[in-house]
Structures are given as C-alpha cells and as structure tokens.
Amino acid sequence: MTSNAIEARRLTIRRGRKTVIDRLDLTLPRGAIVGLLGPSGSGKTTLMRAVVGVQIVSSGTVSVFGEPAGSAPLRHKVGYMTQLASIYDDLSVRANLAYFARVQGVPKSDVERVIERTDLRDQADQLARTLSGGQANRVSLAAAMLGSPELLVLDEPTVGLDPILRSELWAIFRRIADDGVTLLVSSHVMDEATRCDRLLLMREGAVIAVTTPRELLENTRAASAEEAFLRIIEADTAKRDSVSKRLLATRPPPQDRRGPEGTKR
C-alpha cells in the first residue's frame, strides 16, 4: 500500500489558450488535514477536480492511493464536496442522504452513521430548504462521507459561514481525520491555515509553498497566517521579477534586417 494519498507529476491543465496549472509536482501523505490555500482564481478548484478525476488534464499525471485519479478502483475511496451544497430542497436531510446512498450503492444503514458524525441528528427530518447555510454544508459533507471514503476533497466548505459555524465544521473535520481519513480542504480564508496539519499555498496556478502551520509562521516571522501568506507572495513576486529580468538580459536585441535597396524585409 502506497504511503501517499495524492501524487501529481508535471500536471498541466489548460483552458483554451490559458494555462491554469503548469507542470505541477506534488506529493501528499495519508492521514492528515491538508489545507489548500490561496486567493480566488489561484487554481485550487481546478487542482481538486483533477484529484477527483473530473477535470480534463492536458498533460502529466495525477494518482490517488497509487491509482489514476478518477479510475474505477477509487469509486468508493474518494468523497467530493463541491463549493455549492448539492442537496434537494424538497427532501429531508435523511431522505437526501438515503437517495445519495442508493446512487452510490452504499447500504442504507450508512445514512445514520454519517448523520451522527456530522451532528445532524436534530435536523435529520427537516426539509433541506429550511436549513441554515452551515447545516446545508454539513448535509453535503455527510453525503461525501457515505461509504467511508479514505480521502475527502472539500472545496471551500466554509465559504460564507460566520466564525462560529466555521469552527463547528472544522471540529468535525478534525474528528474525521482522527479516524484516519485524509482531507484536502481548500479555502481563501488564511486564518484556517492554523487548523490544518499541512499547507499548500497556491498562486496563479502554482504551488508556491508546501509547509506546516508552525513552519509557516516561523519561517516568515509573521504574527498571523494572513501576514505570512502575504510575505510569501511578496517573495514569490520578487523571484518571478528576477527571473523575467534575467531572461530579458540574455535575449538578443532584435535585428534591423534590410534588403539590398535599404528597405526593411
């Protein structure tokens, strides 16, 4: 059994003429909460879709537990929670989960397990349209947990929630991780970095740092995760500018080629 949950090798993803992710190499171990952090548009969702196997890849590879992302052996090993709560408003919480269990071929008895694990006992018979935003997110999380997947890919699960609801969700994530499940959780809220075991910081389709919360603060000498991330961006910008200047310095000047009569060709 491979010790890594996710491996990407020279992963490249393009949309039209735009390169969204360029030759990315990545290795993530099992059994941790991995925070995928970065501003909106940095490529977080694209990378997560590639890990789940629903993103067209231009070149390179992505594997999960040693299998190609999206392949049949991973069907019940990977759970995916999208940014928007994917539930039916006219069904109760329990009915929603029972439906998703049937679709996935999961025993109906698993519904009660995920209701318990996501603290939805009091809302189990409530219609989805009457739920708060945090409760609806927990139903989507419960649906992703059906079948006891070994990897949960959660795309900005706390977006739009107040600090109390975000804290409640992160407490659930920690309990899930303590059971041995690997979580890949994206966010653009930098203070959530301290709740993770490992961090991937993304910018403009590239991973600019792989670290831990403690190393992030120590190496940048910052007082907060947000300040640390800004310092890393500043360092990355300076590095890119330096590379651009070197490339310009080594590029030969354009030649003014003229024809025999002195006219430009």
Rank of each mutant, 00 (worst) to 15 (best):
T211Y: 11
N137S: 15
I164Q: 12
R175E: 13
A223G: 15
S140D: 15
G53T: 01
F229S: 01
P253D: 15
L183R: 00
L47G: 03
L154D: 00
E226S: 05
E227R: 02
R166W: 11
V153K: 00
I13S: 07
L248M: 13
K108C: 01
T194R: 12
P29G: 09
L120N: 14
T220K: 05
I208M: 09
A124M: 13
A50W: 02
G66Q: 01
I172V: 15
D22N: 07
D122C: 11
A171F: 10
T220W: 04
S140I: 03
T263N: 03
T61M: 02
V34D: 02
P73E: 15
D89F: 05
T220S: 11
G205D: 10
G79P: 10
E7P: 02
I172T: 14
D191L: 09
K245H: 07
T158C: 00
E204V: 04
K44F: 01
L216I: 06
L28G: 00
V210M: 09
P39C: 09
A128K: 11
T12P: 01
Q123C: 11
G205P: 06
R246D: 13
E192H: 04
V153R: 00
I233T: 12
F173T: 14
L216S: 09
L154H: 09
L230A: 09
I208Q: 08
S242N: 09
D90L: 03
P39Y: 11
D178E: 10
N219G: 08
S86M: 07
T46Y: 00
H76P: 03
W170R: 11
E218N: 11
G60F: 00
G180M: 14
A143F: 08
A143R: 13
D256H: 06
V64G: 00
T27I: 07
K108G: 12
A136M: 06
T2F: 05
A144F: 04
A69N: 10
E234T: 10
A128G: 10
D191V: 12
S71W: 07
E261P: 05
D162N: 04
D110N: 02
K239V: 01
A177T: 15
I6L: 06
